[in-house]
Computed example of a mutant assay.
Amino acid sequence: MNRKQTLDLLRKYDIRPTRSLGQNFLVDESVVVDIGKLAELGSDDLVVEIGAGVGGLTEHLARRAGAVCALEIDAHVLPALRAVLHGFSNCTIIHADALQVNLTDLVAAWPGQVKVVANLPYYITTPLIKKILIELPGCSALILMLQKEAADRILAPPMRRAYGPVAVLTACFGTASRKLKVPADAFFPRPNIDSVIIQVVRADQQFSIADWEEFHLFLERCFAHRRKTLANSLKNAGLSADQLLNLPAALARLELDPDVRADHLTHEQLAALYALLTIEL
């Protein structure tokens, strides 16, 4: 769907972009095509699209995937979205806040691969990415369009200011890379800054993490007090007494300095430390 088609649709259904929802509709067909190529869709794929809007991208995905679950929070755009997707029996529109949807249950019955495609508004980018990684660790790929600052947090390496729980979760999930810059003119209304598209591909040999939600909580505790040592941060953030007792031995087994800070550790080291602290040493 190009700019003219999108603007005509907005006028027809009297849709005014909602600033509080961070609504910026994608109106550049070439970007839609690029996203489709990055997703590498086939008939065995279920796509979970977060923020379907008026369906410009959704329609493109539906032509290539086995099924699409299109999540959209804004009731005002639903009539237009339903009209655009009327001829696609493989599309399910879900009117809901993606943060409140159980993504695990949503895809449980699908026998093939699951992929996530999303144009994420800035104000919920980090919570949504964490939710996707925690609830869909078996997802084969994520194609995310987001603002540069949010992408920096996802792709940050150790010892960088942006490095934190979401970067560690992403790295444990698979390989993340920045693929395309999307100019502000590709959207209506035009945002103040450009966006980027990142691709996250699930690792063939993914880390064996029994409970991704608990692992995320552990990471939040590790980075809760960034300027403190890892041990002090975990203690102040409420790590259990038994795990605190085992922490020195776990650090020693991994040949880590007892005064190391969380932001100096790689995702491999943090995952290994979590594993040691959740089994009997």
Rank of each mutant, 00 (worst) to 15 (best):
P165V: 10
K179E: 15
L26Q: 00
R160Y: 14
R226T: 03
H95Q: 11
A176C: 13
P137G: 06
Y13P: 01
L21W: 11
V54T: 12
H60W: 12
V260S: 13
E49Y: 05
D34G: 13
L57F: 13
A62F: 14
N236F: 10
D97H: 04
Q243E: 15
V260D: 00
Q113T: 14
H76I: 02
E59D: 07
R11V: 08
M159G: 10
G36K: 02
A210E: 10
S240T: 14
R153F: 06
V260P: 01
V114D: 13
L103I: 09
Y13T: 01
R3D: 09
G174S: 05
T170E: 06
A98R: 01
A162Q: 15
H225G: 14
V116W: 06
V84Y: 00
D44R: 14
L21D: 07
L38E: 08
I73C: 10
T266M: 07
A109Q: 11
D44W: 11
E135R: 02
P191I: 01
M145W: 08
A275S: 14
P17C: 14
Q113W: 11
Y122C: 01
F207K: 02
L99A: 14
H264V: 09
T175N: 15
I197N: 01
H264R: 09
I129G: 12
T266V: 07
H216E: 13
A186F: 11
V48W: 05
C91V: 15
L180M: 14
V33L: 08
R190H: 10
L155R: 07
S89R: 15
T266Q: 05
R64M: 12
L219Q: 04
S43L: 13
R16G: 09
Q147K: 06
L61A: 04
L61Q: 09
Q5R: 03
S240R: 08
K235Y: 08
W110T: 02
